[in-house]
């Protein structure tokens, strides 16, 4: 498999901070992979993904994106490979209307107007927002604004999409619409690499691999199953327990049988059914 992102011994300390926000971080991401970064607020997740896009000026360590080593000279080239969606839906909406916002990246890249019109429409259709093309942002919900932000990135067709807590300010319905766009995108021909920061376990469960951050360090990585079965790790990093784990704990309190190892919600459902049948 080809590596699309390699981070080697990356450290960074904000000028006025008393300790490093990123502390000797190394990891690799394969092309086409969906990786989620989890960890509590302030653990350094956002700083990490900003470093990948050259949005913070780190002095120690190297970042390589799609074969290009990140440097002040190569930063614009690297940014062409990465599309980022940020947390606050309002603060990343540049255009005065939906269509204008989607076109912003294309305008910056100097794409000719007929091509631009085509790509704006296609991208907005991909996120199911074309009928809102002329709307102003103040008349959209948070979930709709985030889908517009995604369209702005889809229009640029980057090989990597980074979501910096893009769903954390949305209501459950808005979050669901954004996630279904991502799932749809994964099945398309582009199938971009996705790197998402999230607190939401059901969102993290969709990733193929999780990176766990705590206090500026990468303390663990593994499949969602491996991470979710480590209750201590989840609690110490401020994450929620999966519902299946919570239910197993309650079943034990009632003196009932519980599965011997971690099961996903669906697996627990099957397991309970089987146990029920043996009664």
């Amino acid at each position: 498999m080809t590596k699309i992102i390699s981070v080697d011994d990356l450290s960074y300390q904000y000028p006025d901070a008393d300790r490093p926000t990123l502390n000797h971080i190394s990891f690799e991401i394969n092309a086409g992979e969906w990786v989620a970064i989890v960890g509590h607020n302030g653990s350094g997740k956002s700083t990490l993904v900003r470093a990948l896009d050259g949005l913070i000026d780190f002095k120690s360590g190297t970042v390589t994106v799609a074969g290009t080593k990140l440097s002040p000279e190569s930063v614009w080239l690297v940014r062409e490979h990465i599309g980022m969606v940020f947390q606050n839906p309002d603060n990343q909406f540049v255009g005065a209307t939906v269509a204008d916002d989607v076109a912003f990246g294309l305008e910056n890249a100097g794409v000719p107007r007929p091509e631009m019109q085509k790509r704006v429409q296609e991208a907005l259709e991909a996120v199911d927002m074309w009928q809102f093309a002329e709307r102003e942002p103040s008349r959209l919900s948070g979930g709709q604004k985030q889908r517009v932000a995604l369209a702005g990135i889809i229009a640029m067709n980057p090989s990597i999409i980074v979501l910096d807590e893009a769903t954390s300010m949305l209501d459950p319905h808005g979050r669901q619409t954004v996630l279904s766009v991502l799932q749809h995108l994964r099945r398309s021909n582009q199938a971009p690499t996705i790197l998402s920061i999230t607190h939401d376990l059901s969102e993290a469960a969709q990733a193929q691999r999780l990176l766990v951050m705590d206090n500026g360090q990468l303390i663990s990585e593994g499949t969602p199953r491996a991470i979710f079965s480590d209750e201590q790790l989840l609690e110490s990093t401020g994450l929620d327990l999966p519902f299946s784990t919570k239910l197993s704990q309650q079943l034990a309190k009632q003196g009932l049988v519980t599965p011997k190892q971690y099961l996903t919600d669906d697996e627990l459902e099957d397991w309970l059914w089987q146990s029920h049948l043996t009664m």
Binding site: W76, R79, E80, G83, N88, N91, N108
Partner: peptide
């Protein structure tokens, strides 16, 4: 907001 916006514009290739 201005700070966030500047970051978003930069990440979208505004030079």
């Amino acid at each position: 907001r201005a700070d966030d916006l500047a970051t978003a514009m930069e990440s979208r290739g505004y030079q």
